[in-house]
Amino acid sequence: MLTGSIVALVTPMDQTGEIDFLALKELVEFHIKSNTTAIVAVGTTGESATLSVDDHVKVVERVISYAAGRIPVIAGNGANSTSEAIALSKLFTNSGIAAGLNVTPYYNKPTQEGLYQHYKAIAESCELPQILYNVPGRTAVDMLPETVARLAEIPNIIGIKEATGDLERLKELKALLPEDFLLYSGDDATGCDFMLQGGHGVISVTTNVAPVEMVEMCKFALNGEADKALAIHQQLLPVHTNLFLEANPIPVKWACSELGLIPNSVLRLPLTILSEQHQSTVRNALIEAKLLS
């Protein structure tokens, strides 16, 4: 059972937009040294929507190789096409990853029955453990707790990343799901409260820039030490908030570059680097959170 601070890892690129594998290797080492619980490779923060399938697979394979068994790796394997998600799941089966993170299909707005059939088909196509990912603010579809409960009956669907930021949703999920079904927050701003109210961890954007602090916050929250957890949460709140001034991962890539964790903040089009008007705000958030002097 993976609990605590799981990083939704950025995918570093060179000035031409090609994958910077040396920087990727250094990021993996950085998170191992920081005691991050696990790495999500090529989730949506890793620009899964704009990487080719070939690049997607290469990045996951390299992260597994760089990790060398020292930290669990979860691979983004979602798509708005069920057949594509199945193909990725099959590719990653027996690759050494701990699970696949499977975002709800975006743009085509399936019904709840469509979501159920989508995930059922993926899970039944392979033995890879699957973590559902619900982020209606990005996908225009909300997977309801009743649908999650139906899917939880499928043996290799083991958890959900719930990114609504709605703590009432957590209560609904807990009432419907078995105790061993993993509940991860996908919203840094409410992640601490999510864990204090019974969640198992956070799949985090902020962990890219504050891994040590996020590990500590999650440890305290999972132990029920609310005062200590909330103190760290308050320290990081400016970062939680301002890393979403523009569409993720635009601000977090800029922040990683500002902290010297990656050489630059290049993204693949149609995403562009953080607007100049927001750069000072993100920089000040890093300073306020004591991540940058």
Score class of each variant (00 low, 15 high):
209 V>L: 07
235 Q>G: 04
271 L>D: 05
44 T>D: 04
58 K>D: 11
175 A>I: 04
209 V>Y: 03
22 L>V: 15
158 I>K: 15
83 S>C: 07
175 A>D: 09
57 V>A: 10
47 E>A: 02
159 G>D: 05
158 I>T: 12
281 T>C: 03
138 R>G: 05
286 L>H: 12
49 A>Y: 06
177 L>Q: 12
60 V>G: 11
36 T>I: 10
259 L>E: 03
91 L>G: 01
139 T>G: 03
290 K>Y: 08
130 Q>A: 04
82 T>E: 15
155 P>H: 15
72 P>Y: 12
221 A>C: 06
141 V>R: 05
10 V>E: 13
134 N>S: 05
13 M>A: 09
7 V>E: 10
117 Q>N: 14
131 I>W: 04
21 F>S: 09
36 T>E: 12
105 P>Y: 03
28 V>F: 12
199 G>M: 04
141 V>K: 00
271 L>C: 01
214 M>N: 10
59 V>I: 14
22 L>W: 11
281 T>A: 12
195 M>C: 11
130 Q>G: 06
173 L>R: 14
240 H>P: 00
210 A>R: 10
191 G>M: 07
236 L>I: 04
219 K>P: 02
214 M>A: 08
128 L>M: 12
5 S>Q: 09
8 A>D: 13
39 I>G: 04
163 A>W: 01
148 V>L: 04
192 C>A: 08
210 A>S: 07
167 L>C: 08
139 T>K: 03
117 Q>P: 00
97 I>A: 05
156 N>W: 11
135 V>I: 11
71 I>D: 13
109 K>D: 04
177 L>D: 05
154 I>G: 12
77 N>L: 01
157 I>D: 13
278 H>Y: 14
88 L>M: 13
176 L>T: 08
186 G>S: 02
272 T>M: 10
25 K>A: 15
209 V>K: 07
217 M>T: 07
202 V>F: 02
26 E>N: 15
55 D>L: 05
32 I>W: 08
185 S>H: 05
85 A>S: 12
262 I>A: 06
66 Y>A: 14
8 A>T: 06
90 K>T: 14
183 L>K: 12
247 A>C: 01
76 G>N: 08
101 L>E: 05
89 S>Y: 08
200 H>T: 08
283 R>M: 04
35 N>E: 15
28 V>E: 12
263 P>L: 06
231 A>K: 14
6 I>W: 04
263 P>F: 05
250 I>M: 03
254 W>F: 10
